[in-house]
Design a protein around this nucleic acid. Structure first.
Lengths: 327, 327
DNA sequence: TTGTAGGCGTTATCAA
DNA sequence: TTGATAACGCCTACAA
């Protein structure tokens, strides 16, 4: 920086001004400084800048990039952050780097705010972090005065699927859930509510599962062995794919004999060969809300907790149709 | 840091020693310092540390996390880097952040080395970067004295698929390629070589495509309209899935009538409902080699370029079988 | 084993 | 519009 200053014949302070295009330097000087820097090959040292600057304009994002949904969300987050004048530092949770470690790394990088996608850390640990810095939890229900939450109304998503199926004429509908855990509970409740609303609480069967394709296959086997419903509402796309495959292999045609819905609107669901009706969590909207939330805390002075529950959207595809025979 | 020092009654220098567990502090002092820091809630400021320290122990990784393969690779890279005593800074290429920008960000973070996964930047731009800092290009063929390359032998991967099919008795085999571009060319050449080796150059048909499911569907349609081969070797898994779906919908059974192979061993390929024989690029091995390569440059003093071409592995699944009738 | 002094590259403050 | 100077929080000699 001194070199650039010397070359132009100004002070370092002025060069600094130019480089963070802060007001207070003439256009002429600005140009000359930039030219000189270019010639010398000078680039600003962020590390050093971060040390003195009040702000870093960095937002840390913890995600499990192995999850397609997280990856999609991250893409939208960097775009949204960019628009708000922030940069995203991505912390990837992997088998060797657990959530706590990733969060530590993120704050080490001097992030001003934290976005946690689907954290599985104990609620109180997350709350502790929230007390330290603006933190937004994405996709998990959690109540704490220091935390902002952005998530989709999982229950409503499942309800929408049920409504769609009932609208098609289905009455015998089974839900395959994702086991214990809040997300799974929300979706299960959504199923129960919707069935009740349609006066179908009598037919509302729930089969226990998890979030894997295998769980879907097992559940389908169970259905084949007992009584086949006309529609199956699954806790996520993987489960739905497992169900679909198992049924088809058993000669049960989808959607003619059994309709199936998933959740997440995964890339898989969009494949022509799978073509699964699914509930989208609208990653784009969640990203926008999450960034807006941190920015409000950072620049807007907001201190009250925010809880944005976004409406999911049912994406209709070829795995659902009217039941071929009445139950 | 001063606070911690005061609390224990030592100097900052000593606290510094303790925190980067450098030799020169007694176990007793070390413990007391750590305790005091814990109590005060002090954490070392990486930003400041980076400024004076010779090294950052940071490796920058540029990846397109939307790609399942990249995501897998990143997970393995993080683990391998960890073992080597480095930390990974992840730069995500997205629609709004192109490769050049991601690389700039990565060096701004003072990474000591760069890992570029499947870069699409012009070769000379990459070479320019390589002249600046240790750089490993993963998954792309590129020759430059300043660049290390780690990739899998794409041609051999396709060859292995062909060998497998010929071993099953296939002779009429079609390749669906990925268009122009080196990767596609390598795979296409591998196909031609293998067919020639088996004395089948006469039957070696190639259909132009790209890397999408739609390309697979189109190609399959073309095959249905002309002459159906007994096996199709696809440039990647998406294409293979497109082919599989189109054929099955047309009543052509897979693998009984037509066998299909993919490439990448994507999560999709592993789905029970797809169960695709595919070529794995062995992300784990590539990650290990790439990290080894940077570390050799960084700590081992290597200066000659390295080109590691790893052997891909064919993963057999249910989409390939012996042909039902002789051609 | 511990302490002192100086410097890293930038920003912020205040004066010119 | 510009310049001088003091931080920022840590690391690295070197000295004690």
């Amino acid at each position: 920086m001194q070199d650039v200053a010397d070359k132009v014949g100004v002070s370092k302070a002025l060069v600094s001004l130019v480089f963070r295009n802060a007001p207070g330097a003439s256009a002429e000087t600005r140009r000359r400084v930039l030219d000189a820097a270019d010639e010398i090959g000078y680039r600003i040292n962020r590390t050093a800048a971060l040390m003195t600057a009040k702000r870093s304009n960095l937002i840390g994002v913890m995600a499990n990039i192995g999850s397609g949904f997280h990856a999609e969300l991250v893409e939208d987050l960097v775009a949204a952050a960019d628009r708000a004048g922030y940069e995203v530092v991505l912390g990837a949770v992997t088998p060797t780097h657990n959530e706590a470690r990733v969060i530590d790394t993120l704050r080490d990088f001097r992030c001003e705010g934290l976005l946690l996608i689907g954290p599985e850390l104990p609620a109180r640990d997350i709350a502790t972090i929230g007390a330290t810095m603006p933190t937004v939890v994405i996709g998990r229900r959690i109540a704490d005065p220091n935390l902002d939450v952005v998530r989709s109304a999982d229950g409503r998503g499942i309800s929408a699927a049920v409504d769609h199926l009932v609208g098609l004429g289905h009455r015998d509908i089974v839900h395959i859930d994702g086991g214990t855990g809040t997300i799974s509970a929300d979706r299960r409740n959504g199923f129960a509510r919707a069935m009740r609303r349609h006066g179908l609480e009598g037919e509302a069967r729930v089969i226990a599962g998890d979030f894997t394709e295998e769980a879907g296959m097992l559940a389908a086997t169970e259905l084949l062995d007992s009584a086949l419903p006309t529609a199956v509402v699954c806790v996520n796309d993987y489960v739905a794919i497992g169900v679909m495959d198992r049924l088809r292999r058993a000669g049960v045609s989808v959607p003619e004999r059994v309709s199936i819905t998933g959740f997440d609107n995964n890339v898989l669901a969009r494949l022509g060969s799978i073509d699964l009706t699914s509930v989208s969590q609208q990653p784009r909207d969640q990203a926008d809300s999450a960034i807006e939330a941190v920015v409000q805390r950072l620049d807007g002075g907001r201190t009250e907790p925010l809880a944005a529950v976004l409406e999911p959207a049912l994406v209709l595809r070829g795995s659902t149709a009217a039941p071929s025979r009445s139950p």
